[in-house]
Design a protein around this nucleic acid. Structure first.
Length: 252
DNA sequence: ATGGCTTCATAGTGAAGA
């Protein structure tokens, strides 16, 4: 099994990249974030031609998530049940017996912003939801763009980022609370290397200089963790023409 | 150094992302 996540930063722009990546990697499932498409413009037929079915929850301009699978998906749930939110950031489905929860965690903008308070409240609601899902589904993956770098070694310049979004102690505490539900950061199961990133700013030649952050994650329940043999960030995707600023993360 | 790019939006003194 190969399962991946990728913030595509506009599925309209990145559809050719996605179809190419599917053909080269043949994942069983890939979760997408920032599709930025209303539901009636989701490219379901192009993905069907590539051999994948899809479920999606989108909106115009911002946010938007999707789960794309070579296998049938069932039990599709959009959003966090009981948490009122117009922003399309969560989609859950079951494929091959695995509960897959695709998330696009709010960015937060700045610690002083209302969007930051929304991010923390959103993460609290997500935590309660995932706890409930874990009780029902021992085989569970929580994956997507978390907009949190868990540790300083996931940040190119921790001193520069100190006190800012993506690294602030409340965000990291929220991430650790998710971990403590019984989930493991798959990348860190296999590697303790610093400087391994999933996102690089479009500006300042950040990718060439490896000035990035590891903010896209795949968190696995114990049962799943025992079945996987690796986790990687496909950083070469960032060197393509007109790339997303994020690259795919994949377990296998 | 709060920008530098990219996207989607509108035609802004743009907004938002990370």
């Amino acid at each position: 099994m190969k399962i991946a996540t990728w913030n595509v930063n506009s599925l309209k722009v990145r559809l050719p990249h996605l179809v190419g990546w599917l053909g080269e990697n043949l994942p069983d499932v890939i979760c997408l974030q920032e599709t930025k498409l209303p539901d009636d413009r989701f490219p379901a037929s192009a993905l069907k031609e590539a051999g994948y079915e899809a479920v999606w929850s989108g909106q115009n301009t911002y946010n938007g998530v999707a789960i794309i699978s070579r296998h049938p998906v069932t039990e599709v749930v959009a959003g966090i049940p009981g948490f009122v939110d117009e922003q399309k950031r969560v989609l859950a489905a079951t494929a091959k017996g695995i509960r897959i929860i695709c998330v696009y965690v709010p960015n937060g903008q700045s610690p002083q912003s209302e969007k930051y308070a929304y991010k923390l409240a959103w993460l609290e609601a997500l935590t309660a939801y995932v706890a409930n899902e874990l009780a029902q589904y021992p085989e569970l993956l929580l994956l997507g763009d978390f907009n949190i770098a868990p540790e300083d070694k996931d940040v190119h310049d921790p001193a520069l980022w100190m006190g800012q979004i993506l690294v602030s102690p409340p965000e990291r505490a929220a991430f650790n609370t998710l971990i403590q539900l019984g989930l493991t950061d798959c990348f860190r199961k296999f590697s303790q290397e610093p400087g391994q990133y999933s996102w690089w700013d479009y500006r300042m030649n950040a990718f060439r200089r490896n000035m990035g952050m590891r903010i896209d994650h795949i968190l696995a329940s114990e049962v799943i963790l025992g079945k996987i043999s690796g986790c990687l960030m496909d950083r070469m995707v960032r060197a393509q023409e007109q790339p997303s600023d994020h690259v795919p993360v994949m377990i296998f």
